[in-house]
Amino acid sequence: MKFLGKFDWLIIVILILAAIILFIPHGQSAPIAEIYHDGRLVMTVDLRVDSHFSLEGMEIAVSGGRISVVDSDCPDRICVNQGAIDRPGIPIVCVPNRVVIKIPAGDTQFDAITQ
Protein backbone atom coordinates (compact mmCIF):
# COMPACT_ATOMS: atom_id res chain seq x y z
CA MET A 1 0.00 0.00 0.00
CA LYS A 2 1.46 3.26 -1.07
CA PHE A 3 1.34 6.15 1.34
CA LEU A 4 0.46 8.66 -1.38
CA GLY A 5 -1.65 7.88 -4.37
CA LYS A 6 -1.51 9.22 -7.91
CA PHE A 7 -3.81 12.10 -7.15
CA ASP A 8 -1.74 13.14 -4.15
CA TRP A 9 1.35 13.41 -6.30
CA LEU A 10 -0.63 15.38 -8.85
CA ILE A 11 -1.70 17.81 -6.15
CA ILE A 12 1.88 18.14 -4.88
CA VAL A 13 3.21 18.84 -8.38
CA ILE A 14 0.48 21.43 -8.99
CA LEU A 15 1.27 23.14 -5.67
CA ILE A 16 5.01 23.25 -6.41
CA LEU A 17 4.37 24.67 -9.88
CA ALA A 18 2.00 27.28 -8.46
CA ALA A 19 4.62 28.28 -5.86
CA ILE A 20 7.33 28.61 -8.53
CA ILE A 21 5.08 30.74 -10.75
CA LEU A 22 4.18 33.00 -7.82
CA PHE A 23 7.80 33.53 -6.87
CA ILE A 24 9.17 34.19 -10.35
CA PRO A 25 9.89 37.93 -10.44
CA HIS A 26 7.45 39.76 -12.59
CA GLY A 27 8.90 40.55 -15.99
CA GLN A 28 10.34 44.01 -16.57
CA SER A 29 7.63 46.44 -17.47
CA ALA A 30 7.91 48.21 -20.81
CA PRO A 31 10.68 50.83 -20.93
CA ILE A 32 9.06 54.22 -20.85
CA ALA A 33 10.04 57.83 -20.32
CA GLU A 34 7.89 60.29 -18.43
CA ILE A 35 7.72 63.91 -19.45
CA TYR A 36 6.81 66.48 -16.84
CA HIS A 37 5.91 70.11 -17.38
CA ASP A 38 5.76 72.39 -14.35
CA GLY A 39 6.06 69.30 -12.17
CA ARG A 40 3.04 67.58 -13.69
CA LEU A 41 3.24 64.42 -15.73
CA VAL A 42 2.10 65.47 -19.19
CA MET A 43 3.00 62.40 -21.22
CA THR A 44 4.66 59.02 -21.16
CA VAL A 45 6.66 57.78 -24.11
CA ASP A 46 7.31 54.20 -25.14
CA LEU A 47 11.06 53.88 -25.64
CA ARG A 48 10.76 50.76 -27.80
CA VAL A 49 9.18 52.77 -30.61
CA ASP A 50 11.25 55.40 -32.41
CA SER A 51 9.39 58.67 -32.49
CA HIS A 52 9.79 62.40 -32.89
CA PHE A 53 7.56 65.08 -31.46
CA SER A 54 7.43 68.69 -30.24
CA LEU A 55 6.51 69.89 -26.79
CA GLU A 56 6.81 73.33 -25.20
CA GLY A 57 9.18 74.56 -27.89
CA MET A 58 11.35 71.45 -27.66
CA GLU A 59 11.96 68.80 -30.28
CA ILE A 60 12.14 65.44 -28.56
CA ALA A 61 13.27 62.25 -30.25
CA VAL A 62 13.23 58.61 -29.27
CA SER A 63 15.73 56.49 -31.12
CA GLY A 64 17.16 53.08 -30.33
CA GLY A 65 15.56 52.97 -26.90
CA ARG A 66 17.02 56.30 -25.84
CA ILE A 67 15.28 59.65 -25.51
CA SER A 68 16.86 63.01 -26.16
CA VAL A 69 16.05 66.65 -26.81
CA VAL A 70 17.33 67.35 -30.30
CA ASP A 71 16.35 71.01 -30.43
CA SER A 72 14.97 73.60 -28.06
CA ASP A 73 14.07 77.25 -28.11
CA CYS A 74 15.65 77.89 -24.72
CA PRO A 75 18.73 80.14 -24.56
CA ASP A 76 21.27 77.88 -22.88
CA ARG A 77 20.25 74.59 -24.57
CA ILE A 78 21.58 72.57 -21.65
CA CYS A 79 18.86 70.00 -22.32
CA VAL A 80 20.17 69.48 -25.87
CA ASN A 81 23.76 69.21 -24.64
CA GLN A 82 22.73 66.58 -22.13
CA GLY A 83 22.40 63.99 -24.86
CA ALA A 84 20.26 60.89 -24.82
CA ILE A 85 19.25 58.89 -21.77
CA ASP A 86 17.94 55.37 -21.45
CA ARG A 87 18.36 54.70 -17.72
CA PRO A 88 16.87 56.20 -14.59
CA GLY A 89 18.96 58.22 -12.18
CA ILE A 90 19.26 61.46 -14.01
CA PRO A 91 16.53 63.26 -15.89
CA ILE A 92 16.88 65.59 -18.84
CA VAL A 93 15.94 68.97 -17.45
CA CYS A 94 15.10 72.11 -19.38
CA VAL A 95 14.96 74.87 -16.83
CA PRO A 96 13.59 77.69 -19.02
CA ASN A 97 10.84 75.49 -20.46
CA ARG A 98 10.24 73.83 -17.09
CA VAL A 99 10.29 70.42 -18.68
CA VAL A 100 11.71 67.27 -17.12
CA ILE A 101 12.12 64.03 -19.02
CA LYS A 102 12.82 61.10 -16.79
CA ILE A 103 12.82 57.37 -16.88
CA PRO A 104 11.04 55.95 -13.87
CA ALA A 105 13.29 54.02 -11.53
CA GLY A 106 13.03 50.29 -11.26
CA ASP A 107 15.93 48.30 -9.87
CA THR A 108 18.84 50.45 -10.89
CA GLN A 109 22.55 50.64 -10.41
CA PHE A 110 22.43 53.96 -8.65
CA ASP A 111 19.92 56.13 -6.85
CA ALA A 112 21.19 59.57 -7.81
CA ILE A 113 23.92 61.35 -9.71
CA THR A 114 26.03 64.18 -8.37
CA GLN A 115 26.87 66.68 -11.07
Binding site: Q82, G83, A84, I85, D86, R87, G89, I90, I92, Q109, F110, D111, A112, I113, T114, Q115
Partner: peptide, 17 residues
Protein backbone atom coordinates in the same frame (compact mmCIF):
# COMPACT_ATOMS: atom_id res chain seq x y z
CA UNK B 1 23.73 52.98 1.44
CA UNK B 2 22.35 55.24 -1.25
CA UNK B 3 24.38 54.70 -4.37
CA UNK B 4 25.40 57.96 -5.98
CA UNK B 5 27.08 58.10 -9.37
CA UNK B 6 29.59 60.84 -10.09
CA UNK B 7 28.85 62.23 -13.50
CA UNK B 8 31.48 61.67 -16.18
CA UNK B 9 32.52 65.25 -17.04
CA UNK B 10 33.14 64.31 -20.67
CA UNK B 11 30.44 61.67 -21.01
CA UNK B 12 28.16 61.71 -24.03
CA UNK B 13 25.20 61.70 -21.77
CA UNK B 14 24.31 62.92 -18.31
CA UNK B 15 23.86 59.38 -17.13
CA UNK B 16 27.48 58.41 -17.80
CA UNK B 17 29.23 57.87 -14.54
Amino acid sequence: PWIVGIRDPRGNSVQDV
